[in-house]
Structures are given as structure tokens and as C-alpha cells.
């Protein structure tokens, strides 16, 4: 158990319409598939203030990342130029609590795909 908590470990949920609005703003309301994008994040965050994530969507023009449980779900968007060797990027993000991280890729043909993963933010302690 812990004394003070930077982020409470209960599931955090942003207003779902904010997530929906961010997705619509990116996709223009187009259908979003599930194949061709990989999001890699730790199952359990070592520190909710700096959570490493990786996105990879071969052939994507851009990948947007959202944190569905943050007060503001926007995280960032990677736009890949002609000299990108792959449509892969890795960064570190802030998570206000246990939540889904979402990545949506805009493919070269204008279609969209998404992936998401739950990242648990815990107060920790104890062990074997």
C-alpha cells in the first residue's frame, strides 16, 4: 500500500464524446477497420507520467494516438514523410489512470484502421 497517490488507479474515463469527436475529426466519419496497425504498450505502466508506446502501420500516411481516459484524450499525431523508412514511431505519454490507449492510422488510400490496448495504472507495492 502507498501513502500518497499521483494518479488514482481506478479506471479513468474521458467524456466518450470527446474521444468520438477526436476520431471523427481525424477520419471525417469514415469506417475504421482493425487490421494493419499495431499498438504496443506495457500492460502495467511503471509510471503513469511516462508510459512508452509504439505504433506501427505499414503504408500509413499518419497515425493519431488518443488516451481514452485522460481529461483531454488528445496525445499526438505522427505524419510520415517520403523519407520515413517505416510507418513506425515510439514516444512516451501521460495517463491519468487505467484506460485504453487508441491508435488510428490513415492509410495511403484514405482508409482508416485502429488498435487499442488497456494500460493499467496502479499504486503498486507488495510482491513475492
Amino acid at each position: 500500500a502507498a501513502l500518497s497517490l499521483a494518479a488514482l488507479p481506478m479506471r479513468a474515463l474521458a467524456a466518450t464524446d470527446m474521444v468520438g469527436e477526436a476520431i471523427t475529426a481525424f477520419t471525417g466519419g469514415a469506417d475504421v477497420g482493425e487490421r494493419g496497425i499495431t499498438l504496443t504498450a506495457p500492460e502495467i505502466a511503471e509510471n503513469g507520467n511516462t508510459v512508452p508506446i509504439e505504433v506501427d502501420a505499414p503504408g500509413a500516411a499518419a497515425i493519431m494516438v488518443l488516451a481514452a481516459g485522460n481529461p483531454n484524450p488528445d496525445v499526438g499525431t505522427f505524419n510520415f514523410g517520403p523519407l520515413a523508412a517505416s510507418q513506425f514511431a515510439s514516444t512516451r505519454i501521460r495517463l491519468a489512470g487505467t484506460q485504453d490507449v487508441i491508435a488510428i492510422a490513415k492509410m495511403a488510400d484514405g482508409s482508416f484502421v485502429r488498435a487499442s490496448q488497456e494500460v493499467k495504472v496502479t499504486i503498486g507495492g507488495c510482491g513475492g
Binding site: V51, G81, A89, T91, I93
Partner: peptide, 14 residues
């Protein structure tokens, strides 16, 4: 010539 162009929001870590 561009390699990558990233838009950052406050949820990107320190």
C-alpha cells in the same frame, strides 16, 4: 525532404 512531422498535445511526457 520530410521524414516525420509530429503534432504534440499536453499528454506527451516531460
Amino acid at each position: 525532404e520530410n521524414v516525420i512531422d509530429v503534432a504534440l498535445e499536453p499528454a506527451i511526457s516531460t
